[in-house]
Each structure stands twice: as C-alpha cells, then as structure tokens.
Nucleic acid binder design. Structure first.
Length: 937
RNA sequence: GCCGAAGUGGCGGAACUGGUAGACGCGCUGGACUCAAAAUCCAGUGGUGGCAACAUCGUGUGGGUUCGAGUCCCACCUUCGGUACCA
C-alpha cells in the first residue's frame, strides 16, 4: 500500500478526538511537565506558515515527554480581545464577538489539521465572560493591595487604612506616589474624595492623570510597547502625548524583583538583556539644590554626583511644576514661546530628531550646595518629566547631551575629569582623575562618587537613590472590545470595587462601536449600563490587551473552575510552565506583565512559584517574500524590475502583487508571465489599461522580491492548509523543523519539502514489500542494524533535549537511508523507530504502530525506546592521521589499543614515513578514540 | 550610539566539550527505467591544478594562542533583532 497521508491523517484525527487521547488529568502519580505556546490573536487572515513553527516544536516536546512517562499539560487558547476586531466592527458593523468567533473557528480548524496534541477541554478565550470574570477578579485584588517595601510584598489596602487611622502615613514604606506626609488627625478630617485620592497613590491598580500615548485615529490610549517609532503598532497611526485620567498598574513596585529574578530563568541572554534594559535600573543620588532668592528647592537625580563641581546649569523638564513659579517676568515670553513649541511636538518628533537642541532660560538661578556657585536654570525637552525627578544638574564637561546644550547656548564648561591616562575612553566611561573639584581633586571617579555620596548624606542635602526606566503600565483603553472594569463611582467620584459575587461584569450590547465624543470609550453610549441608581456610574474604559494574557497560563491548569481562577490543588500540581515557546515580539510587554501578575499572586499565596515561565524558547519568524511591480508615477506605466532599477527608482511606486500570480515565486528571477499580468489586471481593475514595459525581446515581466513579514496587506500569506493538502501534516511538520534552528528567522521556501516527502515515503516503504503488502520480519537484527537504531535513538533524544529539531530530522533520514540499504524490515528495529518518530510525525507513527499489531494510540500507550550504548561499541576505530595538524589519511586500529601502542604503530605507517622522509618526527599526539597527529620538522 | 544574535558550498543548514569542515536535504551533472515526460532508483557534486593517485587553497577580514582553531583570545567589517535624549 502506498503512503497516503490524506487517508491516515483523516482517520487518526477522528480517532484522537473520539477517544480524547490528549485529555490530561490534574491527578497523576507521574511527574508533571507543562509545555505552553504563546496563544495567538485570532486575526482575520488566519494562520500562516509562520505561526505553527513554535506550535510544532512545542508539540514535539509534549509528545516526547509523554512517551517518556510525564503527565504533560499542553493547552491552547486565544488572546481574543483586541483592536482589529473592533476596527472591523466599525467598518462593517459586524459585532466583534461574531467576527472573533468566526476567526477562532478557522484557527481551530487549521490547527487540527496539523495534528497537535492540545487538550482542547482546557481551551481559554480571553473574551469569554467565564474567563474574564477572573481577569476582573485579579484586577480587583490589585486595586485592593499596595506594595509594602518593608515586607517586600503586596499587602491589603485595609491594613494601610488602619495604619493611617492610627499614625497617618509616616512609618509606612510603600511603593507610592504620595508625596505629602499627613497625620492621623489629618486623615480623619479628609473627605471621602480626598481619602480616595490618597489611597490611589498607594494601590497597585490606581487612577491618576498621566501623560499618555493618545492615538486619535484609534480613539484610544496605547501602552508604550504598543507604540513603535511614534506611530501605533497596529495600524501605524500617529500618536501624541496627552494628559488624561487613566487607570495604571504599579509594576514599578516590582522592578527590583523583576530584575533580580531574571537570573534564575533559563531564557536566552538576549531576552534577559531586553528585559533588564527595559527595567533600566540605575544607582545614583537624589539631591536638593537651593534657589537664589527663594525658599523653594529643586530636587534632581544624578548617577554622577562626583561631577557636581562641573555643574554649570540646571535643566527642568518643560512640564516640571516649578517652571511656572520660577520663571522671571523678563523671561516669561521666551519661556511661554518655548512651552507652546513643546506642545506641538509629538512623541514622534521627539524621537525622530534626537540631535536637535532646544531650550529656554527661565531667569532663575540655583545655588550649588558645595561651592555656592550661581547656576542658571533652563528648560528643555531632553529632560523627561517621568524619569527621576524631572530635573537634572547639567555637567557639560562630562555628558554628551549637556555639552551639546552648553555649546548651543554658550554656557560655561568646566573640565572636572582628567582622562589623559585613559586614551580612547569616552565621555561616558567612569574613569579618570578628578580636577577642579575641591575635596575630590586627585580621586579616581569611582572613589569620588562614593566620597561625595557620603558627604551629601552627612550634609543632609540628599540621599542614595535607585531609579528605574520602567514606568507604571497604563491600563485604560477607550475601546469596546476589552474587559470592563469592575469599578463603580459614587456621586463624589470615588472609585469602589464591585462585589466579587457580581462578577463577571459583562460588556453591554452595542450596535455602534465608534468611540463616544471627548475620548470616551464606546461604552459611554450604553447609558443604561453606565448609569446606576442614586447617581452611581460605571467605569466606561476597558482593560488593555495584556490584561487577559497576563495570567492565562494559570487558567489552563483548571480552566473550567467556576469558584476560583484555578484551584490550589491544580496550581500546586502544575506549579509553573516548564517550557514556553513564542516569538521575541513579546519580549518586553507580555512577558514583563505576566511576571508581574504572577509575582503579585505569589505574594498573595495564590501562585506557588516566583516566576511563571522557567524555560523560554523564542522561535524565529518565518518571513515571506513580498512581490511587487514598479509603477512609474509620472508615466503611469509599469516597468520590468531590471529596467526600473537602471532608472531612478525614486520615480517609481512599488505596487504589491498577489504571490499567486507570480512565476518562479521566491527566486531572484520571479516574474509575471502574460497570464500573470492578466490575473493582476483582473485583480486590480484600476490598472486594466496600464501599459507594461518589458526589456526588448523578453516575454518575462520581472518583479521585485524582498524578504519581509507575511501579511494580508502584502498578499504573500501562505496557508499551511494548502501545504498539508499536498504533502500531509507529518511532512509539513517535519519540513518546518528541518528548515533550520528553531530560534533563527528564515524566509519561507517550499523548494526543499520534496526531500522530506521522499523521506517519509522511504520510511513507510521499510514496512512494505515490493507488492505493497505490510511485511515486517520477526528475525533478530544484525549487529549493524542494531547500531543504526541506537545511533538514531541517541541522536534524536539528545537533540530534542537541546531543542535542535532540524538535526533530529536529519538523523531520521540517515537511519532510513541506511536501513533501506540493508533492506532491513525487522520488527525489533522498526518498532522502536516508529516510537522515536512519533513526536515528529504523529499520524504515520500511529498508522504503523497499529499495523504492527498494537491496540490503541501510540501517543497514549507507547514508551520511548531506551538507548543502549552496547550497540554502538566497535572492535576497531578509524583514526584520522594528521601530519602537522593536517589530516592526510585514515587507519583502523583496535578500539582498545593503548596510547603507547598507537604512538608506536603510527610512526611505522607507510604514509607517515613518506611525509617524514628527510625530516625528524618531533612529537606524536594521540587522543585515544579520536585522532593521531604527528609533528614533523 | 548602546545591548544582543549571527556571518560556513549555488541554496537551507551540520560539526554539542578545540580533534577527518561541509552531515542531512534542495539544486545541479551523468546514468537506469520510459515511445517520451513526470515520478522513482543509482552514481557524482567546495574552488583550483591533474587521466589519476594526489597536491593546493578554503568557515566575513586582519592578527594571536595551540601539536591542531568554524570552535578560544584581540582588533575590525557586514547583516539582523532590541533600544534610544534615562541624567
């Protein structure tokens, strides 16, 4: 019988479903193993060939661990809230839930087609009220907790209130933005509204006015990582800074732990580096400067307190509170002009011209606390309101930006570090000897930092301070398709948590999804839903995309629990994710927020581990090839690529072409044939009568090919279904693995797939005779056959353990080639081989296992074959013989030959004598079992 | 700029702790089968020279360590990813 993937894959897919082969229990004596994929956003374009790369790898690991005797949790779900569905709803009027469920159904079908071993009984969707009930619940926990720096964990706000009632807010070490110290009496006198505002400064989920990334086109606020190069990541719309009342999460409270605990994770160095850069910890000093003719003080933050004698001016962020107070009447006009300039500057402008130096003098002077020097105060947009204290002492001699600023505005520069002993050291390097710096003179920089820090603390003008780049995460979105906040406001505007019993708070029905006016979410239109009795109102914002994805890995452990987000039994059994596979694009956002939520739940003793994801593998992107034609903008004609490139390409627009029309797709020679041009014109009616300019004598219209993202808008999406239809899922799976290391990005290229397809046929053929009858012999294998088997077992299991799946596929090919050569059809060799290949090609393995006479599924009942090194032992070893390190030939020696004997024998070899002719043998190096090198000179 | 990853045949890639560079696959060349083609099977395939044995060069570039370097060290170049006035 011929290998027919279509039939066997259909058959076993059905069998797996009918028999719930992949259903996992939370009660087992077996050791646990949790393999997780980053769940997808169910986009309208469906799965392309890039998505499954990680899913295949994780599926191989899951199946492998299962055969190795582990109880494996391997779930899948959908990150189903999100902007695209809502944008689509605005355009088409289709409810986001409807399009989302359609997309999910499509994704599910595509995934089933690939033979994954997911336990679908645990499927989660973040937009399902049964799921987001618990997202809301965790949010309320965050709302009702603050971070206590003494206890180094989250504590209930109720305890904080009790403390305020007893002693005010002194004596509390908490992560907060409460600046004012108040007494118990003052607390007692506060109005509910005032108390609410104070508590908001402590809560882990809190509301405050923040400068946010406002995206007018999307009508919503975006998180920092949803903005790329000043435009929205989804849609590419402009983003501007705008102050708005927003919910935020106090992730900064966990900055230190998020940084320190990275150490214990088995993540790539680059991934850890990205996280640690994002957290951006720095050690420095918080320090007060007095002002001339004023009692006010300016608080600054610096990591280079040693350079204070070189501080010749100060710079405040334009938004700094003191700017209005300190500006002198004389400078008022100049300052106002500068402030209005800053307002016109979007985040995008600031990012794009980093080198431009702008600023204004406000007329006031600060006093250097060490030498009484009068230093002018400026404002400039290069100082950020949100970092440190929003104010710096500028040291033009030792800071690149300060120097540029001083040069532009003609400010004094005092050299304070002699770097002559360190040629090549840059301005940023902390090396050299202090000069012009009073009591610091002659000290090395690092000593000087320590010395002045001590002095600052002794003088009581400042203290050591650790700062982070990490910002609190803005948590409000003015959108419909997200989790509603379980928060109600009383008539005073005080926020109250909804009762847990009333969760989930479901989204109201709407038929218009456009934002309401004034930056209010579409929920503002649902007046019946928003307005409650006695003047109470609901929150109209919804939660951001990362809300549901920050804890979904815990929900899988006990996905249908209606009483808790997951039972303690389930949490304590599965604990954490042993292997997490996903793309790097989530390096900072999702992984950081998940770690934060997990740590919070750990503090509450609701999660059993400090970290959620022990081992992380980042699969590389599979890119597509974008094909486009050159359109001459003035002549309004298309030019063949080789012609266009010879001309000034600026005059051309590149019009993307659907890859289905292209001949030789993906090669350098890709072109449109006459038929392709016809299809193109049909597809883009507006070019119906546009002329195509060819090279003289050529009938090929060449297109431009470039490697890039697979996307619907580039018309280059390759659907795995098409590949599976032609070659089968087993072949598709093995081919994707065969392409190269899982972590590397690579362009999709179908050319090599025939090699894998041939291999599967050959593998299948081992079990059948010439007439196509199943024919497996019970004879005992020869030594050589055992060796082939055990070489494969060794190689494949070692390589799975180190996630080197491409070399596993090679190992299978080698084994099949060699067994074929020996015409081996012996059960004792073939049966273990079927088990070995089962994680990679689950359908073929299942069919052959069945034909070998086994009942039930190989994936449920099989046992991974054990490696026995006895079979690899050889009587003799082939030694490479090198002369002066260059291999000149090989000679067989007995495997147990002693080193001394080998040395003697080697010198006697004909070939060695030939090379040594006329010269002396100086040294013989023997590495037993490996090689022999003879040094001649 | 800074941080990280990577540069190996025509192509995807292998070589795990320094020990026969190019496994495996694609492609290409030749052959078998066929009326023919496809499919399949067999053989060959880094460059140069040679009928051949063999020689010689060869892992981004330049230097170093070593009996021996794709692998370790130093300097540089290129590509990709992240980040960007962070005081």
């Amino acid at each position: 019988m011929d290998y027919s993937p279509r039939d066997i894959e259909q058959k076993w897919k059905q069998y797996w479903e009918d028999n719930e082969v992949y259903k996992v229990s939370n009660h087992s004596d077996k050791p646990k193993y949790y393999v997780l994929d980053m769940f997808p956003y169910p986009s309208g374009s469906g799965l392309h060939v890039g998505h499954p790369l990680g899913y295949i790898a994780s599926d191989i690991c899951s199946r492998y661990k299962r055969l190795k005797g582990f109880n494996v949790l391997h779930p899948m779900g959908y990150d189903a809230f999100g902007l695209p569905a809502e944008q689509y709803a605005i355009e088409s009027g289709v409810h986001p839930a409807v399009s989302t469920f359609e997309n999910i159904a499509r994704f599910r079908k595509q995934m089933d087609n690939l033979g994954f071993s997911y336990d679908w009984s645990r499927e989660v969707m973040t937009c399902d009220p049964a799921y987001y009930k618990w997202t809301q619940w965790i949010f309320l926990q965050l709302f009702q907790h603050y971070y206590d720096k003494s206890a180094e964990k989250a504590m209930p706000v109720a305890g904080l209130v009790a403390h305020f009632e007893q002693e005010g807010n002194s004596g509390i070490k908490a992560a907060s933005n409460q600046e004012r110290i108040f007494s118990a009496a003052e607390w007692a006198n506060m109005t509910p509204r005032e108390k609410d505002e104070v508590l908001m400064n402590y809560r882990l989920a809190y509301r405050k006015v923040t400068y946010v990334n406002w995206c007018e086109a999307l009508g919503t606020v975006l998180a920092n990582d949803e903005v790329k190069d000043g435009v929205s990541e989804r849609g590419g719309y402009p983003v501007e800074r705008k102050p708005m009342m927003q919910w935020s999460l106090r992730i900064t409270a966990y900055a230190e732990r998020l940084l320190n605990d990275l150490q214990e994770l088995e993540w790539s160095e680059s991934m850890k580096a990205m996280q640690s850069n994002w957290i951006g910890r720095s050690e420095g000093a918080q320090l007060f400067f007095g002002l001339e003719g004023s009692d006010e003080k300016i608080e600054i933050y610096t990591t280079r307190a040693d350079t204070i004698f070189g501080a010749t001016f100060m710079v405040l962020a334009p938004e700094h509170d003191l700017v209005a107070k300190l500006t002198t009447p004389k400078q008022r006009a100049a300052v106002d002009e500068y402030l209005s300039y800053v307002k016109t500057r979007s985040e995008r402008d600031r990012v794009s011209d980093v080198k431009a130096v702008t600023g204004a003098f406000i007329g006031a002077y600060a006093i250097n606390p060490f030498n009484g020097a009068k230093i002018p105060i400026w404002i400039s947009e290069y100082v950020l309101k949100d970092y440190g204290t929003g104010a710096i002492m500028a040291v033009p001699a030792d800071d690149e930006r300060d120097r540029r600023f001083a040069e532009k505005f003609g400010l004094e520069i005092i050299e304070i570090i002699d770097k002559s002993m360190h040629p090549g050291a840059t301005i940023e390097d902390k090396v050299g000897v202090m000069i012009n710096s009073d009591f610091l003179n002659g000290m090395e920089v690092l000593d000087a930092i320590e010395a002045i820090m001590q002095r600052i603390e002794d003088m009581g003008i400042g203290k050591r301070q650790v700062n982070y780049k990490l910002r609190d995460a803005i948590y409000s979105r003015q959108r419909y398709w997200g989790e509603p906040f379980p928060i109600v406001y009383d008539p005073d505007g005080v926020a109250h948590a909804m009762a847990t019993n009333d969760l989930p708070l479901e989204l109201p029905e709407l038929d218009d999804f456009k934002p309401a006016s004034g930056g209010v979410s579409p929920l503002g239109r649902a007046t019946d839903w928003v307005n409650l009795a006695h003047g109470w109102k609901r929150e109209t914002d919804t939660m951001p995309g990362f809300a549901g994805s920050s804890w979904y890995f815990l929900r899988y452990m006990d996905a249908r629990n209606e009483k808790e987000f997951a039972s303690q039994q389930a949490l304590n059994y599965w604990r954490d994710v042993d292997l997490y596979i996903g793309g790097t694009e989530h390096a900072v956002g999702h992984l950081m927020y998940s770690r934060f939520w997990h740590k919070f739940l750990y503090d509450k003793e609701l999660a059993p581990t400090k970290e959620p994801f022990r081992k992380l593998i980042n699969q590389g992107m599979i890119q597509g090839v974008i094909e486009s034609v050159y359109y001459h903008k003035e002549e309004r004609r298309f030019y063949s690529a080789e012609l266009a490139k010879a001309m000034d390409t600026n005059g051309f627009a590149e019009i993307p072409v659907h890859i289905d029309f292209i001949s030789e797709y993906g090669s350098d020679e890709s072109y449109l044939s006459a038929e392709g041009i016809r299809q193109f014109k049909n597809w883009r009616q507006e070019y119906q009568s546009t002329e195509f300019v060819f090279s003289p004598g050529s009938d090929k219209f060449y297109t431009k090919s470039e490697v890039g993202k697979m996307s619907k808008s580039k018309f280059n999406v390759i659907n795995p279904d098409d590949v599976v239809a032609q070659y089968g899922a087993d072949c598709f799976r093995m081919y994707e693995m065969f392409l190269g290391p899982i972590e590397q990005a690579k362009p999709w290229d179908i050319k090599g797939i025939s090699g894998v397809s041939n291999f599967l046929r050959r593998f299948w053929g081992l079990f059948f005779d010439d007439k196509g009858n199943f024919n497996v012999s019970e004879a005992s294998p020869a030594k050589e056959e055992w060796k082939i088997l055990h070489q494969a077992i060794k190689k494949v299991s070692e390589d799975i353990e180190r996630f080197s799946f491409n070399t596993c596929v090679s190992a299978f090919m080698v084994a099949a080639n060699e067994l074929k050569k020996l015409n081996c059809n012996k059960r004792e060799v073939l049966e273990p081989l079927v088990l070995l290949i089962a994680p990679f090609a689950p359908f073929v393995a299942e069919e052959l296992w069945n034909r070998l006479g086994h009942e039930g599924s190989i994936h449920a009942n099989g046992q991974y074959p054990a490696f026995n090194p006895e079979y690899l032992k050889e009587d003799s070893v082939q030694y490479p013989i090198a002369i002066n390190g260059k291999t000149r030939g090989t000679v067989d020696f007995p495997a147990d030959a002693r080193k001394e004997d080998l040395e003697k024998a080697a010198v006697e070899l004909e070939m060695v004598k030939k090379w040594a002719d006329g010269k002396t043998i100086r040294k013989v190096i023997v590495v037993p079992g490996r090689m022999i090198n003879i040094v001649i000179g």
